[in-house]
Simulated assay, not measured.
Amino acid sequence: MRILVLCTGNSCRSQMAHGFLQSFDNTLEVCSAGTHPAGQVNPQAVATMQEIGIDISRHTPKDVKQYLNQEWDYVITVCGNAKETCPNFVGKVKHRVHIGLDDPSEVAGTSDFVTNEFRRVRNQIQERFHDFYLNIRSDKHEEI
């Protein structure tokens, strides 16, 4: 099964979702990309995932354009901007799903507050993507 997780910068939420999906099932082919990819994965996202034993430190932001001609079972957007600006795929996309999530990289405040927001969003990603994974494994194709 081929899954593409799409966000704007491909530096935080989509990278965490990518890491979770791979941790749920190593037979899934998971990629993530951005409509306007950042220069690197957000270091706080890397650290927050490392806390729970998932290593995304080798991930790099990628441009969605490199995936447009490929076939996907699922293209999942995790932010409203990516959902609205998602380009047309020339390849076949069986299912498009939107799982909207807050962007912890936009949070301002004390170091503790920012860290807690990353953890909160990480936990939300884990829960929502695990629900998604269970649904696709039981052959349900409903939006989460």
Score class of each variant (00 low, 15 high):
R58D: 08
Q124M: 06
R128K: 14
K62G: 08
D102L: 04
F132M: 05
Y133W: 07
F24K: 03
L101T: 02
L28P: 02
S57L: 06
E29M: 07
D55W: 12
H130D: 11
R96H: 15
P43Y: 06
Y74F: 15
Y74W: 15
C12I: 04
V78Y: 11
E142I: 14
P37C: 09
N42L: 08
G100I: 00
E143M: 12
E29R: 08
E84D: 11
A108Q: 13
H98S: 13
A45V: 02
A108S: 13
T77A: 12
I76S: 10
G39Q: 05
F113E: 10
V90Y: 01
G19A: 01
L6P: 09
R137G: 01
I52T: 02
E84C: 01
I3L: 12
Q126I: 00
I76L: 13
N135V: 08
I136K: 11
T60S: 13
D55K: 12
V93P: 05
I99C: 08
I125M: 03
Q66M: 09
N42S: 03
F113T: 09
D73M: 10
P37Y: 07
G39E: 13
Q70H: 04
V121H: 05
F89A: 05
R120N: 10
L68D: 00
I76D: 10
K62D: 15
K94Y: 12
V97F: 14
V121Q: 04
D73F: 10
V97A: 11
K65N: 15
T115K: 14
Q40F: 08
C31E: 15
T110W: 07
A45I: 03
N123T: 04
N10T: 11
R13N: 06
T27P: 07
S57D: 08
Q124E: 15
A33V: 10
T48E: 07
V5E: 03
N88H: 08
G9A: 15
V93S: 05
G53H: 13
N88Y: 08
C86P: 00
R128P: 02
E142V: 14
S14I: 05
V5G: 06
I56E: 03
C79D: 15
S111Y: 09
G9Y: 13
D139H: 15
S138M: 12
A17I: 03
G9S: 14
V90L: 10
H141T: 09
Q124P: 00
R13G: 05
F118D: 07
A82R: 14
G91C: 07
C12W: 04
K92P: 13
D139P: 06
S57N: 02
T110Q: 00
C31A: 13
H95M: 07
P37W: 14
Q40D: 08
K65H: 14
S23R: 00
R96C: 10
H130F: 03
K62L: 12
R137N: 13
P104N: 06
V93H: 11
E117I: 07
E127M: 12
A108H: 11
G34S: 09
S32E: 12
S111C: 05
P61E: 15
A33M: 11
N42F: 12
A33D: 11
I56R: 00
A45C: 04
Q44Y: 11
Q124D: 13
L6I: 15
R58I: 04
T115E: 01
Y133I: 05
G100P: 02
K83I: 00
S14Q: 12
